[in-house]
Amino acid sequence: MAVEGESAGHGPLAQFEIHRWISIEPFGVDLSFTNSALFMTIAVVLAIGFLMLGTRRHALVPGRWQSVAELSYEFIANMIRDNVGQDGRKYFPFIFTLFMFVFFGNMLGMVPYSFTYTSHIIVTFALAAVVFVGVTTIGFMRHGIRFLGFLMPAGIPVFMAPLIIPIEILSYFTRPVSLALRLFANMTAGHTMLKVFASFVFGLGVFGIVPLALVTALTGLEFIIAFLQAYVFTILTCVYLNDALHMH
């Protein structure tokens, strides 16, 4: 909406625009229900519907939907077991929710004319910030002040401390930024690229078959990326959680 120039047309970035559908502004704070909010709601409804309806029969021998639901459960459970260990079990609901939220957001974005909320830096950054604050809090709760020792890995000579500690601090605070940027950039770049190539299809006439083929291939690639980025986001959360629980 507030984007200069292109906002009115169908430029590659038009798909990222926020539209306020129901205006809600209590005390001057803008909490409007936007297209972004709508797709978050759809994602949540789909995720809950998929898991609840798929398992409503409690089948001993699972059907298709139940199999996929169980598969997603075991996928995340194994990820936590491999990367965090047994004491990661209690964070399972949160990590599972995180994966589902990002995954459904990415996948919904592949539907034509839809909105990809994971392509908005504020959304990915908020998720990364929750992970960062949560993991840091868990680290301090678990190890107390000794968690600061995380910034000075064992076995490094003391005279290296002035060099190592700033680097470690920087790398620690870069984590949420890289986590947020990776997802945002992948989603934004992928969708922009699809739109750019798609806009060539009609412009080139008969030769439009070339960008069309390319867009088809890229769409397949985007589906892989949609899954992969959800996976990366989740597994990095697991890695950070493991660092907080077990230090280096």
Partner: peptide, 15 residues
């Protein structure tokens, strides 16, 4: 559109 600060609060709230 992602860097428009006026779109931050509604998204954060609904997120």
């Amino acid at each position: 559109p992602q860097f428009d600060p006026t779109a931050f609060t509604p998204q954060l709230f609904w997120l």
